[in-house]
Write a protein that binds this DNA or RNA. Structure first.
Lengths: 151, 151
DNA sequence: TTGCTCCTCACGTCACGTGAGGTGGC
DNA sequence: TTGCTCCTCACGTCACGTGAGGTGGC
């Protein structure tokens, strides 16, 4: 009989694997974003299993897009409801995807804006005020496109 | 003789144009991220000119990529140094571009991750545990790529 | 006068970060 | 015993947000 290998991790390992600092892992647990992690019998140290890690990866992904901890809590709470929660989860994920799409769009605009600013300072450095002026005008036009809801 | 049209804006107009709330505009001014804005003679209300607006657009762009206010202050302080500051500004902008490039990369990964999660819950909803399992494995692989420094 | 926007100042908040002081395992 | 990581709890911090209370212009 082959037993399923159940790797477990310390909080430091979980931190490096998820990219979140250990203090944040404790914080998320304390406010109920993730379920309480099991503890070492005598040490009281947190012991993370694969399922914990997967959940944390997911939470890290949500957090990275600026979602509030209150919303993250809602998301994670649905996880244990199984197939019944599927439509709800899909709706939440679709909303998340829309947020990501919008963020990606904004980043493209900002990249163009920064590129123009680099050109601008290049012209200033080269003592070409006419070109600088022209680029500044272009940048102003682009700035109009950027004046949408950030963050 | 044609006088240059110098449009001016109230704080509310500046807020809608930059996408930043009025409270944030006051905050940035109070901590020196932007220069003190001139005031109406008798009212004491802030009066923003085109130059202020352009500076604010730039600051909003920096802030949107998660730059600290301390760093933004540094960036803006260089602005009035003219051509001498050009190499410095270009270096700062290049660093900003690198941050944006990294952010864009992360967002693409997160979009793929969320797409997989949607597929997963679709499989759960359709009662196809085998497919769900397969997708979960794929997601785990992708999660590895996500475990870099977020934010 | 009545709304309207704006003002300052102080305190609140959100999402953590940072010690202080203490404990378990090689 | 000596480091090492971990623990909790409390307080700090960063970037604002939110009133309270007040004032100027149509």
């Amino acid at each position: 009989v082959t037993t399923t290998r159940q790797r477990s991790y310390t909080i430091k390992e979980a931190a490096t694997l998820t990219g979140l600092p250990a203090s944040t892992l404790r914080y998320y647990e304390s406010i109920g974003v993730i379920a309480p992690v099991s503890r070492g019998a005598s040490s009281g140290h947190r012991v993370y299993d694969e399922a914990d890690l997967e959940q944390l990866m997911w939470v890290a992904c949500l957090a990275a897009t600026g979602m509030s901890v209150a919303d993250m809590r809602r998301y994670v709470a649905n996880r244990d409801l199984g197939a019944a929660a599927a439509p709800d989860q899909i709706a939440l994920l679709a909303a998340q995807q829309e947020r990501l799409r919008h963020e990606a769009e904004q980043i493209v605009l900002r990249q163009r804006y920064v590129a123009l600013k680099i050109d601008y300072w290049g012209a200033v450095r080269d003592g070409d005020p006419q070109r600088a002026e022209q680029i500044a005008a272009e940048a102003a036009t682009l700035a109009d496109a950027l004046k949408q809801t950030p963050r």
